[in-house]
């Protein structure tokens, strides 16, 4: 259980986060959504302790700020939006660094399993700089997974904090990454993900937190939060949600009457891939 009370963050003299209460249960995938500048990443970074500010964050009842870092590294993994690697470490070496710091440092084959999970076994000995942006993003997910391999570790749920994990990925790998996070939650771990893609959020999240101007505008089940009225208000544009024939909520941006047909096609393609 992650519980946070009255979180505020000031950056550059501006209040980015305004007294946010947040909680998330293990076994669930929690998505933080909202327009640019609404404070999604700031909330995540305040929850992980990267940003200092008012309020308290508790993980499993213990305050996160000032928690022993090495212990914390075995309970929680954090995947930042972009990570620049100094020196020419190979993908495998990067995953090994995470693995050595994590839960299963004594079980060497976790490294290969984590690399296989993101489908990069054939690139394992390639220097990170030689990987594409999407491959790098997946490599870092593999690193965090090698660190936090067990959704439940020593009887306590583990947590993954991920900031836009699918931003650089093509649609197939977006679904692959979301499936990894989904599986982690289904097996008892907790996931808190800042999400840009509302469709993927609707498909995979158990709970959605909608941010607006540094505050939580709405939170709850995807079908309750991702509504036409709420989304249109938060994102400042007309948004119409819809249901695909298969299942789940589908969102179609309403840019203009002439664009509607195209948007509908794009969504149909999305659904086809998911089920195909």
């Amino acid at each position: 259980m992650i519980e946070a009370h009255d979180l505020s963050v000031d950056l550059g003299g501006r209040r980015i986060l305004r007294g946010v209460d947040f909680s998330a249960r293990s076994g669930t995938l929690n998505a933080i959504v909202g327009p640019n500048g609404s404070g999604k990443t700031t909330l995540l970074r305040r929850l992980t302790g990267d940003l200092a500010g008012a309020g308290l964050v508790r993980m499993g009842g213990r305050v996160v700020d000032g928690h022993d870092l090495r212990q914390l590294a075995r309970r929680r993994g954090v995947l930042a939006q972009s990570v620049q690697v100094g020196f020419s470490f190979t993908l495998r070496e990067i995953v090994q660094i995470g693995h050595a710091a994590g839960q299963m440092g004594h079980v060497p084959d976790i490294v290969d399993k984590a690399i296989a999970e993101v489908d990069l076994t054939h690139r394992a000995d390639t220097p990170m700089q030689a990987l594409s942006g999407g491959e790098q993003a997946r490599a870092h997910l593999a690193r965090v997974r090698a660190q936090i391999w067990q959704p439940v570790f020593e009887g306590t749920p583990s947590w993954l904090f991920v900031d836009e994990p699918v931003a650089a990925l093509d649609i197939g790998h977006q679904l692959q990454v979301m499936a990894i996070l989904r599986r982690f939650a289904d097996r008892g771990g907790g996931v808190i993900a800042v999400m840009h893609d509302l469709n993927l959020t609707a498909m995979h999240a158990d709970r959605v937190v909608l941010m607006e101007a540094g505050q939580i505008a709405a939170q709850g089940r995807p079908e309750d939060v991702l509504t036409d009225r709420r989304l249109s208000h938060a994102y400042g544009c007309a948004i119409r949600t819809n249901h695909a024939p298969a299942s789940g909520v589908w969102l179609v941006p309403q840019a203009g009457a002439t664009d509607q047909g195209m948007a509908g096609q794009a969504i149909a393609g999305h659904g086809g891939l998911r089920h195909g």
Binding site: A73, V78, G86, G102
Partner: peptide
């Protein structure tokens, strides 16, 4: 770990 940046290194304990 710090080759991945200070924040990431902290997250790795």
């Amino acid at each position: 770990a710090m080759a991945l940046g200070e924040a990431t290194a902290r997250h790795m304990g």
